[in-house]
């Protein structure tokens, strides 16, 4: 047990080492883009306000009427904050494929050496899974830290007259994107992450199917993903099957979905275990 845990840590650390350049790049882009957003967005707003006042000899009230007041939420809603988040999400979708296929790149495939190691092959699977999640949560943490840096910057740039004194948490709670990323509502946050975990497990299983059976594996992988999706979505059609839209409460539907997600997750783990141990070809 101790040895397998040690192997798992070793591989996770190894995978993290390989991810780190990509992760540092995403963290850097997030920090720099966010910083630009915290400075550029309020400065642009103040520039517009000053220009309006100068050109129209207007009062600050008239300028507010024209452009509205500025709050931290306005800064959060800019491309400079939303863009890196979108980049991070798409980056990790890409990396979830790359983390497997990189092993088969090149002439002397690294996968051969990895799979020949005297360890449980599922250790590789779990390490890759955990590393993707460490990467996602590191990026979320980076975004969180960036907010605490950005908040005083924005309030320092905007003149008091034009600034809506909104707390950082108020601004974050109002932003729909942060509802999915941050633990603002624990139940929702856990649900989103649980769904993400199951999606990743299904994706890894589909990738292993492709690696095991080549072209036939692609078809199998797609069929497996579709079956998993159908199974998870099936309860949503129960009201139609039972001719009653109110036969299930929303909370019951969530509980059924949770059970089905667990079933899909366990099924994916067992399938992956079988594929990685018995079927995968180097």
């Amino acid at each position: 047990m101790k040895k397998s845990l040690h192997n798992f840590l070793k591989f996770t650390n190894f995978e993290l080492e390989r991810l780190s350049k990509f992760l540092f790049a995403l963290m850097g882009i997030t920090f720099i883009a966010n910083l630009v957003g915290y400075i550029y967005t309020p400065m642009k707003y103040m520039g517009k306000i000053n220009e309006y006042i100068a050109q129209n000899s207007a009062t600050s009230e008239q300028a507010i009427q024209q452009y509205g007041p500025f709050s931290f939420y306005n800064a959060l809603n800019s491309f400079w904050i939303v863009g890196p988040i979108a980049l991070g999400i798409s980056g990790f979708i890409f990396y979830s494929f790359f983390i497997w296929y990189r092993e088969w790149f090149g002439k002397n495939t690294f996968a051969y050496r990895l799979l020949m190691l005297p360890i449980h092959r599922m250790t590789l699977f779990y390490s890759k899974l955990v590393v993707v999640f460490i990467g996602i949560f590191t990026l979320i943490s980076t975004q969180m830290i960036s907010l605490f840096i950005g908040y005083p910057i924005v309030s320092a740039i905007i003149e008091n007259t034009y600034y809506v004194n909104q707390s950082l948490m108020e601004a974050v709670q109002l932003h729909p994107l942060f509802l999915y990323l941050f633990p603002l509502d624990l139940g929702f946050f856990l649900t989103i992450n649980a769904v993400g975990l199951v999606v990743l497990l299904v994706l890894f299983t589909a990738i292993l199917m492709e690696r095991s059976y080549a072209v036939k594996g692609i078809v199998l992988g797609i069929i497996y993903a579709v079956v998993a999706l159908t199974l998870v979505l099936l309860p949503l059609f129960l009201p139609d099957l039972l001719n009653n839209h109110y036969i299930l409460y929303g909370s019951e539907l969530i509980i059924i979905e949770a059970i089905l997600l667990v079933i899909v997750a366990v099924l994916s783990l067992f399938t992956s275990r079988h594929l990685i141990n018995k079927k995968i070809t180097v």
Partner: peptide, 22 residues
Amino acid sequence: FLLLIIVTLTGFGLYKAQASSP
């Protein structure tokens, strides 16, 4: 990385708990 995640999420949780509702 793990420490960064744990400290940030815990800090955020504490900050959220003490922050007033909007």
